[in-house]
């Protein structure tokens, strides 16, 4: 199995994502250049964090029109796995691969801190090795992370099991205090209808080494290994 990581101008978590796949999963990982049309035969695409195109206009709005995004949209339409992390989540929403959008944090501050997430769905390619209700610690680092969608869409996502992660307190409760950006219903990550495309604001690729305070991100990448057995 081969994993591709896209580099847009302004991506800054692409190397971390490549390292995560190579060092922690021992799988082949290749960088994908935003101007290319070639997915190089990858089975999984990672849209990494950063500030693609300087976040001009809106976070993710310009990246969505990068040449490589046409191929990634086609890959997703074929049911191919894609994970958007942080800015990658914003890009996936702008591209229509995921429902909703990410707005400016309600307190207007950039937040770089560890958060606790509760796994809400294991029916995605990236969470099948987790268990429902599991608590994961990983860092966030964003200024535009407030997940937003209209009430009808939120109800539909809840009903269809497309809410994948929620910000919670240490006891696992989705409180206002545990919500670092004002996301509606404390949503930290969502999936598309098939569970092949997942977006997450926190950074699992920064939670792989005990040196960085948490190894809870590993389970998301390890979930991909099921694809190699299929």
């Amino acid at each position: 199995m081969k994993v591709g990581v896209v580099t847009f101008p302004g991506s800054n978590c692409d190397e971390d994502a490549l390292l995560a796949i190579r060092e922690h999963l021992h799988l082949e990982a290749v960088p994908l250049w935003h101007k290319d049309h070639d997915l190089q035969g990858v089975d999984v695409v990672i849209l990494p964090g950063g500030f693609s195109y300087g976040d001009y206009l809106r976070a993710g709005a310009i990246a969505r029109f990068a040449p490589i995004m046409q191929e990634i949209a086609a890959h997703a339409r074929r049911g191919g796995p894609v994970i958007g992390i942080c800015n990658g989540f914003q890009i996936a929403c702008e591209a229509g691969l995921l429902p909703g959008g990410l707005l400016r944090n309600d307190h207007l501050q950039f937040r770089s801190m560890a958060v606790t997430l509760r796994v809400e769905s294991t029916a995605t390619v990236f969470t099948r090795e987790t268990s429902k209700g599991a608590l994961l610690t990983m860092p966030i680092a964003h200024g535009d992370g407030r997940y937003s969608a209209d009430e009808a869409t939120l109800d539909r996502l809840e009903g269809e099991g497309q809410v994948v992660f929620r910000y919670v307190d240490a006891a696992g409760h989705p409180t206002v205090a545990a919500n670092p950006n004002g996301s509606l219903r404390n949503i930290a990550g969502v999936a598309n209808a098939t569970g092949a495309v997942v977006g997450i604001m926190p950074h699992p690729e920064r939670a792989l080494d005990p040196l960085l305070g948490s190894t809870d991100g590993l389970v998301l990448f390890r979930s991909l290994l099921a694809l190699t057995k299929a």
């Binding site: 206009l57 709005a61 029109f65 909703g100 707005l103 937003s148 969608a149």
Partner: peptide
């Protein structure tokens, strides 16, 4: 198509 986000 670009300038405004239809969701927000």
């Amino acid at each position: 198509r670009l300038l405004a986000n239809p969701v927000t």
